[in-house]
């Protein structure tokens, strides 16, 4: 990401917001709330970053919210999960638990049984679901209280190799894995026990109400297709004033609304540098009409991360962004 390269580049990127936001955008949700900032490092409240040297550069791979709103950041570079709890009333800028963490305070670390996890989910009972798609090619259910782990291979019907798993989707009917951005495979039941596999194209909607899928389309657009039970298939073509180069998140939220988050950029004339880029999100009504939008100057950086966005049950959207100083969590309210 430009921000990681130089302050000057960061300023240029922020300046691009207006450009990228131009065009036929639906009403904006406005500026996001910064709910967490954490510095790079290995101390309390800090998150690990690995600078590549003939290898990949890595940042915290993912993050999740507990049932009580607690934030769990998968700080696999430091071999742990950093837990931040919400501060009553919010707005604390320099809490003692971790400088710069606001309005969430650093609470504790949970040491991990490995350093190659890329995704995290937190269950209502406190158990943590971890994905190690490359080395173990398995889901690991980890109980931080007892340190007990249960390893369940992801390989099987619909998943020929772990490296193709691109997302963990927790739904009412169990845990699904997005494979290669093509189809999803249900691998665990609601209690996180292995179950008979079920495969659907795209991604399952919440409440097993149907499926939704998206792919990059012609001319820098994106084709969103969703099919609810009882309704015929619905297609929406999303085109922006800046070409869409990468799709980031696709999920259905409260009331059947559908969220699409994408990364749009435009190359400079010489083709050697990106001239303009930003991340944008759009909400669509159940009948496919755009309702509201938001945008973020923070895009993917060289420091690899597995999950960039997370949709919360109330419709809020949270982005984990990497900056030269550390990590920020930005939150947009729901539509």
């Amino acid at each position: 990401m430009r921000f990681a390269m130089s302050t000057a580049a960061a300023l240029v990127a922020i300046g691009l917001i207006a450009v990228c936001s131009a065009g036929e955008q639906p009403p904006s949700l406005g500026e996001p709330e910064i709910i967490l900032t954490a510095r790079w490092g290995s101390g309390p409240g800090e998150l690990g970053k690995k600078d590549g040297s003939e290898g990949a550069s890595l940042g915290p791979m993912s993050f999740a919210f507990g049932p009580d709103g607690t934030i769990y950041v998968l700080d696999q570079v430091n071999g742990r999960v950093a837990v931040f709890r919400p501060v009553a009333g919010g707005g604390v800028s320099e809490p003692p638990g971790g400088p710069g963490n606001a309005p969430f305070l650093f609470d504790r670390f949970i040491s991990l049984p490995g350093t190659t996890f890329e995704e995290i989910e937190v269950g209502a009972d406190g158990r943590i679901l971890l994905l190690d798609r490359l080395v173990r090619e398995a889901l690991v259910i980890f109980d931080p209280r007892t340190r007990e782990t249960e390893e369940l291979s992801v390989l099987g019907a619909g998943i020929p190799e772990g490296g193709g798993v691109m997302a963990v989707l927790v739904r009412e009917d169990g845990v699904w894995l997005d494979y290669g951005r093509v189809h999803s495979v249900r691998v665990l039941d609601p209690r996180w026990n292995p179950c008979e596999r079920k495969i659907v194209l795209g991604r399952p909607m919440r409440g097993a109400e149907g499926t939704v899928e998206v792919s990059l389309g012609v001319g820098g657009g994106a084709d969103v297709r969703y099919e609810r039970k009882g309704d015929g298939p619905l297609s929406v073509f999303v085109q922006d004033d800046v070409p869409i180069g990468r799709l980031i998140e696709l999920a259905d939220g409260p009331g059947g609304a559908v969220l699409l988050v994408y990364h749009c950029w435009r190359w400079a004339e010489d083709g050697d540098r990106i001239e303009r880029q930003e991340v944008r999100g759009r909400w669509f009504s159940p009948d496919g009409k755009p309702t509201v939008a938001f945008s973020s100057p923070y895009t993917l950086t060289e420091w690899e991360q597995f999950r960039e966005f997370r949709l919360l049950p109330d419709g809020s959207v949270v982005q984990m962004a990497f900056t030269p100083d550390g990590v920020k969590l930005l939150k947009w309210r729901g539509p």
């Binding site: 490359l134 080395v135 060289e302």
Partner: peptide, 21 residues
């Protein structure tokens, strides 16, 4: 890619920051 010490050589689907690559 030979991703790193913890991972070894892997075959995977992943995002790319085209501004860096």
């Amino acid at each position: 890619e030979a991703k790193g010490c913890n991972y070894g050589i892997v075959h995977n689907s992943r995002g790319i920051d085209w501004g860096s690559y």
